[in-house]
């Protein structure tokens, strides 16, 4: 239904609209918090704080992280050779498949592009 605008004062329109936008998005912010609060699938993070802290047992110096078991030795050898051929000093301590997460991949791509 069309009707006459309630006001034609630009500053009142600006004030009313900004207030409404802020209120709606503010309520939406609490809707998101409520969804998170009632989420039955969220991991229980509180249990970590309750657990008593034990003295860390004395352990031997950490071994190098083992190569991921699903990667063939030949592949690891090729990767290590490629790293050495690129002139990067040090040793290959671990080889893991990339977690195909879009954000991480994007970050890695940007890092590579900068190189």
């Amino acid at each position: 239904m069309e009707h006459q605008p309630v006001t034609t004062n630009p500053f009142i329109i600006m004030l009313i609209n900004m207030t409404v936008v802020f209120i709606v998005l503010f309520v939406l912010m609490y809707v998101i918090k409520l969804i998170h609060y009632v989420d039955p699938t969220k991991p229980k993070e509180e249990t970590k704080e309750v657990a008593p802290v034990k003295a860390a047992p004395t352990v031997a110096p950490a071994e190098p992280e083992p190569a991921f078991s699903g990667i063939p030795d030949e592949t690891i050898a090729v990767i290590a050779a490629a790293v050495a051929a690129a002139g990067i000093s040090g040793e290959v301590r671990a080889v893991r498949p990339i977690n195909r997460n879009g954000w991480k991949s994007s970050g890695r791509m940007q890092g590579i592009e900068r190189m």
């Binding site: 802020f22 503010f26 939406l28 912010m29 998101i32 918090k33």
Partner: peptide
Amino acid sequence: PLLARPATLLLGA
């Protein structure tokens, strides 16, 4: 990202 940090809704406002 919006759901993880809902306060950013205010920046959109």
